[in-house]
Amino acid sequence: MGHDLSVFSYASVMAATINFAEENKLGEGGFGPVYRGKLATGQEVAVKRLSKCSGQGTLEFKNELILIHELQHTNLVQLFGFCIHGEERMLIYEYMPNKSLDYFLFNSIRGIFLDWSQRFSIIEGITQGLIYLHKFSRTRVIHRDLKASNVLLDENMNPKISDFGMARIFSINDLEANTSRIVGTRGYMPPEYAMEGIFSTKSDVYSFGVLVLEIISGRRNNSFYNDDRAINLVGYAWELWKEGTGLQLMDPKLADSCTNKDQLLRCVQVGLLCVEDSAANRPTMSDVLSALTNESSRLPAPTKPAFSTERHAVTSSMVEKEPQILSVNDLTISDCDGR
């Protein structure tokens, strides 16, 4: 492929994972299970194994290989190589010792390890990764499945965007595209994509906005299933913002570490701007970085976000008590605890 990718033998992968031992299993998503492994060189890796029952697994496998041929950034997970053996398809990634963002963020105990400074740094890192995908990589890439479980954390808790199986490559002049095959995760998909199949870089911006609100609050977007006032976190954040009580969105675990309340409120505002109903009104990721780092700049007032309070057919299906793992042709919901 003309790239620094290794072709791993099946025997070496089996040895690294101890025959895919259950104790080495890190998680499982729509693609299939992910295992921790240790190569003969001593290097730790994460082995992503294509599930034979995954309807889009082969497409995802090819997609990730093609994309990783182009993408190299400090805030993207690095792919070392792949293995093809009979019907087996495997991707070998760098191992992320601190698993995924959701492993910490939504846990009442582990969430304490993410103070406000760390969370803001994670938001910045994700922003940088998306700017690279949308603007500075050799081909413009739309991730289409950005969420907390697809942001992995290295030994220094630096974020790295992972899982490019759903991603799409755009030519530099393309602004948007349309698809009849909707893939992604409920609660992170913008209205124009969930309802009409239209996606663009602004689709990732919407997902990023949801993720920012989750990082600030320590709550999943779909965790409001018993709340008649708001259907999801986006709606709850909007209600608080309208009332001038945006600080109430803050995760209680941040009470001691968040000394810069203006910075947190600015992040809430940026998050709400990213989930605007109209894609045209959402900022670019470059605009987001400027808003986050230039606290003297004035930001526009957000308007009512998409999927906030109305309980209609599309949003009602998003409300669930537990994250759901599915792999079907029309909709893919993938959650993975870590790599």
Rank of each mutant, 00 (worst) to 15 (best):
W238R: 05
Q269W: 07
S290Q: 09
A280P: 00
S297A: 14
L273S: 06
T259F: 10
D204R: 10
D228T: 10
Y236F: 15
Q248L: 15
L272H: 01
L213M: 01
E214Q: 07
N221F: 02
T284G: 06
P300A: 11
W241I: 01
S286R: 05
Y236L: 10
P305G: 13
D256V: 15
L272W: 02
A237T: 08
R229M: 14
N226E: 14
R298Y: 08
L265H: 12
T303H: 14
S257A: 11
L273H: 08
N260T: 08
R282G: 04
R229Q: 15
E214G: 03
A280W: 05
T303K: 15
S290M: 01
L292I: 14
E214M: 06
Q248T: 13
P302H: 13
F224S: 14
S203W: 02
N221V: 13
S223L: 02
R266C: 07
Y236T: 08
Y225R: 11
K242F: 03
L273D: 05
G271E: 09
R219H: 04
S286G: 01
C258F: 08
E276I: 03
N294H: 11
P283Y: 07
D251S: 09
V205W: 04
W238Q: 03
T303Q: 15
D256T: 15
R298L: 10
L272C: 04
Q263M: 14
D256M: 15
V270H: 00
A291N: 01
Y236Q: 12
L254T: 03
S286Q: 05
Q269G: 07
N232F: 09
L233K: 06
D287I: 03
E276H: 12
V212W: 00
R266W: 02
E276S: 12
D277A: 13
G235K: 13
F224C: 14
A280Q: 12
T284Q: 04
A237R: 02
A280I: 12
K242Q: 12
K253L: 15
N294C: 08
C274F: 06
G246F: 02
D256S: 15
Y206D: 03
D262E: 11
C267T: 02
A279N: 09
S223I: 05
S297C: 13
N232A: 10
N221R: 03
A255T: 13
N281W: 06
T284K: 04
P283S: 12
A280S: 12
D287K: 09
W238K: 09
N232S: 14
D228G: 10
S217P: 04
Y225G: 04
V288P: 01
D228R: 11
S203R: 02
C258I: 09
E214W: 02
E243A: 14
S207K: 00
R298F: 05
V288K: 04
A230M: 13
A280K: 11
N281D: 10
T293R: 09
S207V: 00
E214P: 06
K253E: 09
G246Y: 00
V288T: 05
E214F: 03
L265C: 10
Q263I: 11
Q248P: 01
E243F: 05
